[in-house]
Amino acid sequence: MPDPTALPLVFTSVGKVYERSHLGRATRQQALRLVSFEIRAGEIFGLLGLNGSGKTTTFKIALGLIQPSQGQVRLFGLPPVRAQARRKAGYLPEVPAFSQHLSCEQVLAFYGGLSGLGGRILEHRIASVLELCGLKLLRRRRVRELSKGYRQRLGLAQAILHDPELLILDEPASGLDPLAILEMRRAIEHLNGDLKTSILLSSHSISEIERLCDRVAILREGRLVKVLEKSAWKEAEGGLEDLFVDAVAAPLGTGESA
């Protein structure tokens, strides 16, 4: 039975090694090393890191798409591989992929159905998220006809369709124009502010992270080198950017905290 008081997401000493073999040669890549953090209910938690630092791996482990090599992960108190654990989570990958021949409405009906929604409730939810994500006029437009920005909106729409308590957003502003970035930010603020949705997100835009997040974790080469409260970068002279650069540039083993 899930613990109703459980935190949305808890990582405890999680490690991940990718083992691949090609033409008889085996390679090992340590993607995460002893990563521990937790997401509190109702907060927006940011994940910052350079390319290849392990952000997407973290998200996929959180959703049971990948198994950790060590450590423990709990999603609302349950292992993420359990389908029940994912009931309250929504996911927007960096590049959401949909069947090209489906319309926006059909895409949402598909994912809503997989989340256990149906009938009038599903119809109502589809209408609601299409409105929220600015897709109302495009509800019958096929995915293949949508621009990158509108596909990203559709990705957000499917992620929030079933009213999740935890939203995992992998670079939600990736490839969006400034207006679309603003609208995405507003949507995230609404979800967290009005609906109290907990949010875990990653971004290459430090300014966006600064604006949105309550806490930020910095990943470097698979290690979680720092977790910062909002007050920390508010008080820092160079803001979050300086703190981030210090964290990723300093030699490993100095100044790590979790």
Partner: peptide, 17 residues
């Protein structure tokens, strides 16, 4: 390859189903 499986399996649906 197209990552469609990511979105589907992030739903509360087991792999057997």
């Amino acid at each position: 390859e197209t990552k469609r499986a990511d979105l589907i399996l992030s739903r509360p649906i087991g792999r057997a189903r």
